[in-house]
Design a protein around this nucleic acid. Structure first.
Ligand SMILES: [Mn+2]
Ligand SMILES: [Mn+2]
Ligand SMILES: [Zn+2]
Ligand SMILES: [Zn+2]
Lengths: 136, 136
DNA sequence: AGTTAAATCGTAATCATTCCTAATAAGAGA
DNA sequence: TCTCTTATTAGGAATGATTACGATTTAACT
């Protein structure tokens, strides 16, 4: 996933092309980290000083629906990052200080499916928490 | 972990023995599932019709601190279940309909530590979501 | 340029969780 | 058992993230 692909995805689904959406997508794609709605709004302040929280949340929800972003819960708040879905399925180490992520290649699901035969599996989450070199 | 051990743990840390705490612990230990604060309050209604949300949240926070319960985020709300810490480290399949859990023995961390050398790892989460036999 | 529906702003409402204060009760000691 | 101290609790207010809403603006199409 990159910004152009994301914009095309929006168009394909009949959504409009707006400067605010492009800015959000660019901001997200430039940061390899999980960010809260507030942080993302903050990042828009330069170009769009009066951008509304409603716009942030509505667009993030849309991005999530189209799998343009992936989300997780950190410190009781929803956090968002640009999707890694172009790459092969993987998970993340997440720095609890700065939110930065690092790929973790191992996915435990391959081994788990045997263990859970007969269950209807719809998803899974695997995240490693800690502190990156800069924040340690 | 069982109810007696949990009560002893509270005493050891200088906390008082109250009927409400015992009831919460028993209710939690009787249910092998993740529950919200509201569900737990609801479960207390028979014996303590006027129990306050503050009491629920305060005691749950205390239980969490003493590792009597373990928590996760489901549907945007914090959920709690009686701890499995007496057993060897493991993870859970969680039914998104009824909250029931099932042990998953595999823990991916053994394989991951090599991948993340140099990082300071403080925790991890691995959960499998889906629907149990009854809810499927 | 005109039309239409989506997008946005600003603000109000919602909902889970936390905070606060006065009243209550557990535990320790006399 | 009585008293004292301090933790615990109820009830309601406050907080903070997220969602909903009506009025206005704007992208996309003709
Ligand atoms: Mn990634
Ligand atoms: Mn378990
Ligand atoms: Zn996986
Ligand atoms: Zn593990």
């Amino acid at each position: 996933m990159n910004v152009s692909e994301a914009i095309q995805l929006l168009k394909d689904h009949g959504y409009k092309y707006t400067g605010k959406r492009v800015d959000m997508l660019e901001f997200l794609s430039e940061h390899d980290k999980y960010m809260s709605a507030k942080e993302i709004l903050e990042g828009m302040k330069d170009t769009y000083p009066n951008m509304s929280f409603d716009t942030i949340y509505r667009n993030l929800a849309l991005f999530e629906e189209l799998e343009i972003v992936e989300t997780t819960e950190l410190f009781g708040e929803k956090h968002f990052r640009f999707s890694c879905t172009h790459e092969e399925h993987h998970h993340h180490f997440i720095c609890l200080q700065c939110g930065k992520t690092r790929k973790v290649e191992i996915c435990p699901m391959d081994h788990v499916r045997n263990e859970l035969q007969g269950y209807s599996i719809s998803g899974h989450k695997f995240e490693v928490y800690g502190y990156c070199n800069k924040c340690h």
